[in-house]
């Protein structure tokens, strides 16, 4: 197995707000190996985008990393100067976000923006022709037909799917070893989504680019990821191989998420929506953050936070699997009363 490209250990992030300091990420640990596609999934507000932004130190101004480490290609990102960090962004780690229109400048042609992006990452000494050729190659690679001509168009002259391809082309300009894609296909229809996922998989296969794919769509995760991190209230509550996560999920939250997905097979039945909602970061409960929605919760779940344990090839944060607890205090794995697949 290859070495970890990215190691996130005990990452803690807060947002400073008028209402107080919000703990947005707490003790998040996971790895991305070279060439791996890792999915991050969870309900809205669980901290997926915060995680993606924190890795590159691109948090909004009121966000702060207050603990833990992010190691990328053997270097601690916190120790880098802003110049070195700029090199990592782009060449080492690149990002693609949900809405390409807000990331592309409407007043410049796609070609100008791509050449600027190349210059920003230290390729300023090359001639404009070389930069232009590289931009055209990058666009061709992501499937923009007639790229040599299209490079003179403005962003609004492209469809939504094409704009997302352009964003991916820009992200790939410097052949990053890790691409962070935050809901990169969520605004697209099924065909464009499938086309972009296919493109990401091809890039992964041909260039060995590792991908951190953030999505709340479990279908998308199952489609392309090798490993999955399930986030809840700023914690990684379960992590492991995609087959294990979908076939034998351990955490009650993972099971509930999977059970809520509509499908033709559920026709005529009530969907297993998860009762209640993600707790507010301003008033997080003291114990397991999922306790008030969990059908298995017992006293200990409300009293303290479960640690992350290795079980069956997965890492899981739940007292159901904590053998150090006396049997009488342990929650019971009575799946019949909980949402989830049997």
């Amino acid at each position: 197995m290859s070495d970890p490209l990215l190691t996130v250990a005990g990452l803690e992030v807060v947002y400073h707000t008028d209402a107080g300091t919000l703990p947005a990420l707490s003790d998040v640990c996971f790895e991305v190996r070279e060439g791996q596609i890792v999915g991050v999934v969870g309900e809205s507000g669980c901290g997926k985008s915060t995680l993606g932004a924190a890795l590159l130190r691109l948090l909004s101004p009121n966000g702060e990393i207050v603990g833990g480490r992010v190691m990328f290609a053997g270097r601690d990102l916190a120790s880098l100067s802003s110049g070195e960090l700029r090199k990592v962004r782009g060449r080492g780690i690149a990002t693609v976000f949900q809405d390409p229109l807000t990331s592309l400048n409407p007043t410049f042609t796609v070609g100008q923006q791509m050449i600027d992006a190349e210059r920003a990452h230290g390729q300023g000494r090359e001639s404009k022709d070389v930069l232009r050729r590289r931009a055209i190659d990058a666009l061709t690679r992501v499937g923009i037909p007639d790229a040599a001509r299209r490079i003179r168009n403005h962003p609004h002259e492209f469809s939504g799917g094409m704009r997302q391809r352009i964003m991916i082309a820009i992200a790939l300009l410097h052949e990053p070893s890790l691409l962070i894609a935050d809901e990169a296909t969520s605004a697209l229809d099924v065909t464009l989504e499938a086309q972009i996922l296919k493109l990401l998989k091809e890039i992964n296969a041909s260039h060995g680019t590792a991908i951190l794919l953030i999505s709340h769509n479990l279908g998308v995760i199952a489609e392309v990821c090798e490993r999955v991190v399930v986030m809840y209230a700023g914690r990684a509550v379960e992590e492991g191989d995609v087959y294990a996560i979908f076939d034998r999920p351990l955490h009650p939250y993972t099971r509930a998420l999977l059970a809520a997905v509509p499908s033709p097979q559920h026709r005529g039945t009530t969907l297993a929506a998860i009762p209640g909602r993600v707790p507010s970061l301003l008033a997080l409960p003291p114990g397991c953050k999922y306790a008030d929605r969990c059908a298995h919760a017992v006293a200990v779940c409300f009293a303290r936070e479960p640690a992350s344990l290795a079980r069956g090839g997965l890492r899981v944060r739940c007292f159901l699997y904590d053998d150090s607890l006396p049997a009488a205090d342990k929650p019971r794995a009575d799946w019949a009363k909980a949402p989830g697949r049997a």
């Binding site: 099924v190 065909t191 989504e193 499938a194 199952a222 489609e223 995609v242």
Partner: peptide, 18 residues
């Protein structure tokens, strides 16, 4: 093209993308 939330069922699924 519809993504299937089951990693077993989508082997080669993206090959048929429209």
């Amino acid at each position: 093209c519809a993504p299937v939330p089951d990693p077993h069922l989508n082997e080669g699924h993206l090959d048929n993308v429209l």
